[in-house]
Design a protein around this nucleic acid. Structure first.
Length: 838
RNA sequence: GCCGGCGUGGUGAAAUUGGUAGACACGUCAGACUCAAAAUCUGAUGGAUGAAUAAUCCGUAUCGGUUCGAUUCCGAUCGCCGGUACCA
């Protein structure tokens, strides 16, 4: 369907922009601070399969916004780079023996070419890749700042272990209890790990969310993830021992109902608690729990499991002896790893008590029999001595006072957030710049020893011992201590992929600085990021980790803003159509035939299929490749279609037929100048008014990222121009300017054809005359009992009386009020009249 | 289960603070151009009854509420999508 020469035009202008460095940006002090904007995309992982249609969605949105800002006189920083450390390249290396650096850089070149083919206004001089040593030198340096501040520590807590990959997995890499990479069931294994103390920042991370212009849903998810709760820690004496068992509870008021205790299988006191005759049973239970994945311990475990330790604790409020159990429904990673169980008022505790025949004591007045089911709603306290008759809040208050007075417990705050397991037993990541010295302990490298380069290896397989492939290179591992100069060994763990993406937005500001990770001046010139656009899948992890690093840098005085990303927008996913059988199974697209419009059958069976929306997937053969679209319709059509599909934030299905509509629109614009001569005559009043309305709407909608409605307004304008014969210069050139951010290639071409010097990129954005956007006539709606019965076109500014008269004189209205009494008259000026009749 | 989001024509979607539901686009139909087709241009297009560009009724997932008036506000239900996993 190719008609206008998009291929030629797009190549021409992409070359022009590159040659003339149109979008290179400097820290020009003549722009006042409020005229500087930093607009950032989440940078891509350069996968081997190349760009998919989801990438250009966010990138086009920011591109339009940046071009719009530039035309409005802003100095705009808009960089792009690559998140280039990561698992797939390493897995590919393990399979093929090819160095991840080679494959990664090949992929980057492909990605860069693909991204450039869409004509985005990035300042490519600032491109960074997280795997380059110029970059990761500073990732390592920031790690050392965290280390110096005591925010990094070694730990032996159990982690997820994959027996196939012979490596540890972080929680986010375990899907459904299985290794995300190979699908092997994950087991728990204790391994030495570097962990970052993100929990120390829990309160700050929580509090500062309030200052951010982010979607409420994302803030809410981060709040839930941090999961701050206020309660009490209570100390239970262990019978016949000097040891105490600490528990955390949000319901200290239910202490009188605590009839047993449970500790997690990983709890440090387990050995002590297990009595001689129970030792074997306890050991067996701990072993079985260790072999269970988190999923088996939780979701699949409909039945509670557990084992009695043989020991008892003393309930501090009533001195009753209560048994101590071990059960895997209590997690070592939350609270103290031990709980007081109140079976009458907690479903989990109730199930456990029922299964093992433990006593259930009602302490909140319940509307059910707590022997039959748990009562988890509120109620006044009963069987609770000095709390009887009190409500929840008062009882908690009173119990806390009592515990503190007796020194048995105190107020405590808890977080769901866990410290961040930061080391990976892999090759393709930043080496952790630490040395283990037998005399000095763990010693950081000196700043001038950075970057600690990733050495060449013969094989990318993990060591199999739980150590990274680096552990196998003796000449690299064996080194000298930076402190005492004696023999020492290097840390062989590497950093997770998150590390590089935790601070990349800072490096863009000053990508070639080899003195500092970013200069103070440049950081102050640009920060914070004014708009950050990316997928909702990063709502918690990436955004929380990056905020954490940034807050640490802020506390160290290295950056000047508390938060990195002032405004965040999540783009929706681009999905695809898929075809569903009656049994809800999906049929690959190439097995489907459209027999008549919107009627689909499966070729093999002639079964009728329903069209549904699904994620693009290779197996459904409904993946759209941007290269194909650009080849057939051009980059401008691709860009504009993705913006025209619907609101940026929602997910929407790709339909190439819809794209052809946008292509047709661009072609119509092109043909306007082919078929008509631009004249200097005055446009008609109607066109002039429409033009100003269009400027207004496109301006507001572009400003608020409502690109779909901005585009439809431009379509309305072009449709109206088509109905006339002429092409007045003011209309034509304004249209070109409005189109500029959306379809920059053809807009530049048209701008040049209209007799202007390039480039359109810095031409001032058109302004509108408010007077011309207001209609003098308005449609007045005439209603009877709230139903529209007539309409009337009137001059603006009729009085209430005039409007009422208008309604009552209207023939069609009269038909509905005839013989009835008007009981109420509602008049909305310049809008409607509603007569309520009986 | 819990948390968050979303349900509008045949399809993607519009709709300031509650005030004409369906802009724009796809698809479909018709007309113009053409020997013909494609492309293009112009027009029609939520559903029902009607000869109708007359008129009436129905219609924003379902049911109910508030209101002169609800796609918009409130309550309940159903469905879909995303997040999460016994958080004491």
């Amino acid at each position: 369907m190719s008609k206008y020469p998009f291929k030629k035009i797009e190549t021409k202008w992409q070359q022009y922009w590159e040659k003339n460095q149109t979008f290179a940006v400097t820290e020009d002090e003549s722009f006042p601070p409020e005229k500087r904007k930093y607009v950032l995309d989440m940078f891509p992982y350069p996968s081997g399969s190349g760009l998919h249609v989801g990438h250009p969605e966010g990138y086009t949105a920011t591109d339009i916004y940046c071009r719009y800002l530039r035309m409005n006189g802003y100095n705009v920083l808009h960089p792009m780079g690559f998140d280039s450390f990561g698992l797939p390249a390493e897995n590919y290396a393990i399979k093929t023996g090819k160095h991840p650096k080679g494959t990664t850089e090949k992929n980057i070149n492909n990605f860069r070419k693909q991204i450039k083919s869409l004509g985005f206004c990035y300042d490519w001089n600032r491109e960074i890749s997280t795997h380059s040593s110029d970059y990761y030198r500073w990732t390592q340096w920031i790690f050392l700042q965290l280390f110096d501040k005591g925010l990094a520590y070694e730990s032996h807590t159990p982690i997820n272990w994959c027996n196939e990959c012979l490596t540890g997995l972080a929680n986010e890499e375990v899907k459904d209890g299985r290794c995300e990479r190979c699908g092997t069931a994950v087991v728990r294994k204790s391994i030495r790990q570097w962990v970052l103390r993100i929990t120390e920042y829990a309160d700050k991370l929580l509090a500062d969310l309030d200052s951010l212009d982010w979607p409420e849903s994302v803030k809410h998810m981060q709040r839930n993830w941090i999961g701050r709760s206020e309660g009490a820690s209570v100390s239970f004496k262990i019978e016949d021992s000097d040891e105490h068992l600490e528990v955390y509870t949000t319901r200290a008021d239910t202490l009188f109902g605590a009839t047993y205790m449970v500790v997690s299988p990983e709890h440090p006191l387990v050995d002590l608690l297990a009595t001689a005759e129970k030792k074997a049973e306890v050991a067996a239970y701990i072993d079985s729990a260790a072999h269970k994945s988190d999923l088996e311990r939780t979701d699949l475990a409909k039945d509670k499991t557990g084992v009695f330790t043989g020991s008892y604790a003393i309930n501090p409020v009533n001195n009753k002896k209560i048994p101590i159990w071990i059960a895997d429904y209590v997690l070592i990673s939350y609270g103290t790893g031990a709980i007081m169980a109140v079976p009458a008022h907690d479903t989990r505790d109730w199930e456990f008590a029922k299964k093992f025949g433990l006593p259930i004591v009602e302490v909140l007045k319940s509307e059910v029999d707590v022997q039959e089911q748990a009562w988890t709603e509120d109620g006044l306290h009963v069987n609770s001595d000095f709390l009887d008759g009190l409500n929840k809040d008062d009882a908690i208050e009173k119990m806390l006072g009592w515990l503190e007075e007796k020194k048995l417990g105190k107020k405590a705050t808890n977080y769901k957030l866990r410290d961040w397991v930061f080391s990976r037993q892999r090759y393709w990541g930043e080496p952790i710049p630490l040395v283990h010295c037998p005399t000095c302990g763990t010693v950081p490298l000196k700043e001038e020893q950075l970057p600690l380069l990733l050495p060449e290896v013969k094989s990318y397989e993990p060591a199999g011992t739980g150590e990274s492939p680096l552990a196998k290179i003796d000449e690299w591992v064996n080194t000298t201590c930076p402190n005492c100069g004696g023999k020492a060994k290097r840390e062989t763990n590497t950093m997770p992929q998150w590390a590089g993406s935790c601070w990349y937005y800072l490096r863009y500001l000053d990508p070639n600085n080899d003195e500092r990770f970013v200069s103070r001046e440049k950081e102050q010139y640009w920060m914070p990021v004014d708009l950050y656009v990316g997928g909702a899948e990063h709502a918690v992890l990436h955004l929380l980790y990056a905020r954490f690093w940034h807050q640490v840098l802020y506390d160290l005085g290295l950056v000047t803003t508390k938060e990195p990303f002032q405004r965040l927008v999540n783009q929706g996913m681009i999905t695809s159509f898929a075809y569903q059988r009656k049994d809800k199974s999906l049929v690959p697209t190439d097995m489907v035939e459209e027999t008549e419009p919107d009627h689909f059958i499966e070729k093999a069976t002639n079964e009728e299929l329903e069209r549904v929306v699904a994620k693009m997937s290779k197996s459904l053969k409904n993946v759209i490749n941007p290269d194909d679209i650009i080849r057939e319709f051009g980059a401008d059509s691709m860009r504009m279609y993705e913006m025209f599909m619907g609101p940026l934030e929602v997910s929407k299905p790709w339909a190439t037929t819809g794209l052809s509509g946008v292509y047709r629109f661009i072609d119509r614009v092109w043909r306007l100048q082919e078929e008509r001569t631009v004249t200097d005559e005055e446009p008609s009043e109607a066109i002039l008014k429409l033009l100003h309305k269009t400027i207004k709407k496109v301006t507001h909608d572009t400003d608020s990222l409502n690109f779909n409605t901005a585009i439809s307004q431009m379509m309305v304008l072009v449709n109206e121009i088509y109905k006339t014969e002429s092409l007045p210069r003011v209309v034509w050139e304004t249209l070109i300017k409005l189109l500029g951010p959306y379809v920059p290639h053809i807009a530049e071409e048209l701008w040049e054809l209209a007799g202007h010097e390039p480039t359109l990129a810095n031409v001032p954005w058109p302004t509108y005359d408010e007077k011309l956007t207001i209609d003098s006539e308005v449609q007045i709606i005439l209603q009877v009992n709230g139903k529209v019965r007539s309409k009337s076109l009137q001059e603006k500014g009729l009085s209430k009386a005039e409007m009422l008269a208008l309604a009552k004189d209207d023939e069609r209205v009269q038909r509905w009020i005839e013989g009835k009494t008007i009981v109420k008259e509602i008049v909305v000026p310049d809008k409607l009249v509603n007569l309520v009749v009986k």
